[in-house]
Structures are given as structure tokens and as C-alpha cells.
Design a binder for these strands. Structure first.
Lengths: 269, 269
DNA sequence: GCCTTCAATTGACTTGTATCAATTCACTGC
DNA sequence: GCAGTGAATTGATACAAGTCAATTGAAGGC
């Protein structure tokens, strides 16, 4: 593995604050692998032998039932996945598939569990990571049970805008059919939802979406910090856990005068 | 706090295998409290100062948006809740309300986080608990995105049957309007879903549901171990994490010849 | 005893979403 | 260049679920 890849892994909140020894234990049997687009990395129901760390590319997590499939999450670098199954040494509940050419670090599950037993700081980091993922799913469930498809799309666009710190032009990172499944609708309905949002100044041109009336869009979307996490991703905020902490601090500060960057909250500077 | 209550807390997987010292640290500032039915224990958005341990009664976790409310989970003793928020010292994403008279142990969040730093076994236990809750939510999302309301109800009844080890007569533990919200439908639609299930031998009499044709019900419900956890609750299986491990072992063993009790899987007896 | 209250049910209707089919569009390979 | 593939869109229609309103039913208070 290249040194710069190792640095990126060490940069993950999961591994950031652990002892050098622990890091060596955890990554001893790890190997870096490249996969073409459309590769099934893991099938739901399979035993999970590795913790996956996505270093480059995009991975989709999805679930299947009765010949139907639904996208549960889409991951972008750098992020880990199926940590929960690794911790419990349980079978996967979701399948994982590469959406593009990917570079993935695979760390044996045994090594992770051993490292947790050795280093309370690492075990703590795992807990924080899992807590972040858990809260992400709570948000997902609320989003799906409380909103209709147009509202979900509207909030998705606003979250994207906040995450990428883009102005009034956001770029969709995925194919529309994948996005539709993620948002819990059919591709046909996503198209119709986009047309419905024209009324509030949303225009789509391929993957480029222009928001010419954010005020109206927000009036329709009614974004809520307890459902939508508007933490600016990238920079200091890479893991869900960081985004959760950012969100809480933002809310406590009133959502306007709060910490402007993640570092303002994380460190006392 | 009564000694028998302390024993019940110590019996939780979260606290079962930790050092006596750690347990003392964790529970030092804890206090037992009783609440009448309908009490709001926690409002979404509030900072979370305590880990709650439900010793008696029922608690509902719900979320709100735009004047609508949805039930996200219903807890029965003995179980902990809002562990994720405690670990991250973040604000609650869900509100908690007692459905009946409850007895709840409240453990300061600081004490939990301190204990995690001191004792890797405790940190590990927290990770396992969170991993179990996370996987429970993954199941919930799949359930909601892949099934319609009748299918969700059918599977709910089958899961209840497996959990309580009841024969062909299951008892609903909650009011129907609460159940409807948990299953993601209106009370009116729950009524209709029950009538739809008459065709497969389901009859309702208040809280008592008789399943006179389980084969037909299963044919309709198509239960799936990757969505529905049929672990028999009570006995050895109290936390989500245990149920997850049970489920994996059950599947690996083929779902028929597998471990008959949780202990068969957990210990090598 | 009766009255109140609220959960549960039932029917009529509206809205939301999925499905099916046809067409357009963009990219890829030859 | 052009055909072929699959994504995206659009329209017509069917089905699922929510809403509104009225009724029934059961538990609790006086």
C-alpha cells in the first residue's frame, strides 16, 4: 500500500487517535484492492470477514426482498462500511456494489475486534463511528416516514448544497435511477418530482441542478436539523459521527451564530 | 435502588462482562425514577444528559416533523435507550414518552463516557450494543422501502409470534394507533390491513390475534432473516446485539438445524 | 345506572405513487 | 459516420394509502 493511502486511512476519525501499536495490529493483515465498476463486493446474508475502507470511487449499499432492490446508502471516499457486522461478527444485512472503479482497503474483522480489546481509545472510536451511522439511519427513517417524495427530493438538494458548499448550482453525484432508489421512489417519479420543483425555481440539466429560488425551495422542503444534517462535508468532517457532533453544536448555538467550521467545534481554538 | 434492580441492570449485555470497578464508575451518579404514563422523558433536539435504562413499563421513541409524528420504536424492559446520543454527547434525534407507568434508571452520560475510556471491555460492549441497534434500523428501512403495509403487518405478526414463542395466538402489546404509526400507516389503514389478512386466517379480537393458517400467512408475508429477526426474545436474548448474533448463527446453520437457544450459540456448551 | 371520552372501525373520496408503454436522449462500439 | 444500448422523460392508467366523516364500541367518571 502506498504511504499516502496509509495516511488517508490514518486520517479517518476511526483511526485518528489510536496508539501506533493498535494501528499496526489493526492493519497488519490489510490489503488494498482495486475493483471495476459494477462489482459485487458483498452479498447480503454473507458472513463479513473484512472491514472495508473506501479510498477511491463510489460504493452503493442496497437491500433486496422479493425481487425488488432498494439503495440504502451511497458512499464516497474516505469512508468505512459494514463496521456493525464486523463488530458483531454477523452476516451482512446489505449488499455492496461498486458504482465506479474503486480502490478499497480491506481489513480483517478479527484484527479490528482484537484492536478494540487492546485499545480503549480505538473501541471508543468504533463506538463513535457506529453512533454516527445509527443516527444517520434514524434521520433516514424519519425522512421516509414523515415526508412525501417531493419533500424528500427538495431536502436532498438542500443537503447537497450545504454539504458541498456549492452556491445555487449543485451537481448530482449519482445516476438518477440510483438517486431515485435512494430517495425511495421510482425513476419515473423522480422525474416528476423534479418537474414539480420547477415551481420553486429548480431546474435540471443532466446532473447539474440550478436552484434559482432557495427561499421558496426551503419553504417547501422545511429542512429540519433533526432530520437533515447540513454539515459541510469534506474538510474536517468526514465521518457521520463528526457530522452529528457538528449538527448538535450548530443547533445549540442557534443555527446561525454557531461554529462556522468543524474545527471550531472540535478543538478549542 | 433495590438490589434486585441492580442485578437486572448488571444482567444487561451492556454491563454484563465489565469489571466491578467500571460498573461502580458508570452507576455512581445513577438514580432510579418512576414516571406516570404519558410523560415526555426527552424531547427531540434536547441535549442528552443521561443514558436511560428501562426497568419496567413501556417507552415509545418518536420523531416529529411539520406537525406530524411517527413512532420509531417501542421499548420494553430491560433495555437502554439513546445510547448513541450519549456516546457522541449530541442532541436527541428522537423524543421519548412513557406509554405506561415506568421505572427508569438514569445514568449520567459523563459516567458512561468515562467508563468507556477506562475499560475496553465496556467500550466493546457499547460498540456491540450500538451495532445491534444499527442493524435493527437497517432492517426497519428495508422493511419500509421494500414492503407495502399489509406485508409489513403480516411480518410483524410473525415476528411477534417468534419473539414471544406464542403458538397461534399472539397478543399485541400496544394500542393499535401506536402500532399503526410504528408500522408506518394510519390507524384506518391498519384496520383495513387486518381485514385483508382475514383471507390468510388472521382474526383480531381486541389485542388478541389468532393465526389459524400460518402457512398461508407466511406465503403472503415472505419473512426474510435479513429483514425480520425471529430471535426468541426474553431468556438469553435481551439486547438487539444478541438477537443479531442469534440471527446470523441461525442463518449459517440453515435456519432449521441451527442453535435452538441463544446459549447454544453464545457459550460452547 | 348513565354519560363522557377516546380508540377502533367502516365507507366514500382524494391524493400519492407505482406500473406500463412509448419516446427521446446520450453515450459506446463498430 | 451509424446502429445499439440503456438512461431519462412523458403520458395513460391502476393501485395503494391518506383524509374526512360517521358510527360503533369499550373503559372510566359521576
Amino acid at each position: 500500500m502506498r504511504a499516502c493511502d496509509m495516511d488517508r486511512v490514518k486520517g479517518l476519525p476511526l483511526f485518528a487517535e489510536i496508539a501506533a501499536d493498535t494501528f499496526r495490529v489493526a492493519t497488519a493483515g490489510a490489503h488494498l484492492q482495486r475493483f471495476p465498476a459494477g462489482t459485487m463486493l458483498l452479498l447480503e446474508g454473507d458472513p463479513v470477514d473484512f472491514l472495508y475502507v473506501l479510498l477511491d470511487g463510489q460504493v452503493e449499499l442496497h437491500g433486496t426482498w422479493n425481487d425488488h432492490e432498494t439503495v440504502l446508502a451511497i458512499l464516497r471516499p474516505v469512508s468505512t462500511f459494514i463496521l456493525a457486522a464486523v463488530v458483531l461478527d454477523a452476516d451482512a444485512l446489505m449488499s455492496a456494489r461498486t458504482l465506479e472503479r474503486c480502490e478499497i482497503l480491506m481489513i480483517p474483522g478479527d484484527a479490528i475486534r482484537t484492536a478494540m480489546r487492546l485499545d480503549p481509545r480505538f473501541a471508543m472510536a468504533v463506538s463513535r463511528d457506529l453512533a454516527g451511522c445509527y443516527r444517520g439511519l434514524v434521520r433516514t427513517v424519519k425522512n421516509h416516514k414523515l415526508r412525501n417524495s417531493v419533500e424528500r427530493l427538495a431536502n436532498y438538494l438542500l443537503t447537497l448544497r450545504a454539504a458541498d458548499n456549492s452556491g445555487n448550482v449543485v451537481r448530482l453525484h449519482h445516476e438518477k435511477r440510483v438517486l431515485a432508489s435512494l430517495l425511495g421512489m421510482t425513476p419515473e417519479n423522480l422525474s416528476r418530482a423534479f418537474s414539480a420543483l420547477q415551481a420553486v425555481g429548480v431546474n435540471v440539466q443532466g446532473a447539474v441542478v440550478t436552484l434559482s429560488n432557495v427561499v421558496a425551495l426551503e419553504a417547501l422542503a422545511k429542512p429540519d436539523p433533526l432530520i437533515d444534517n447540513h454539515a459541510p462535508r469534506g474538510g474536517d468532517i468526514v465521518a457521520e459521527a463528526d457530522a452529528e457532533v457538528w449538527s448538535s453544536e450548530w443547533n445549540r448555538a442557534g443555527g446561525v451564530t454557531g461554529p462556522r467550521t468543524a474545527s471550531a467545534g472540535k478543538r478549542n481554538d
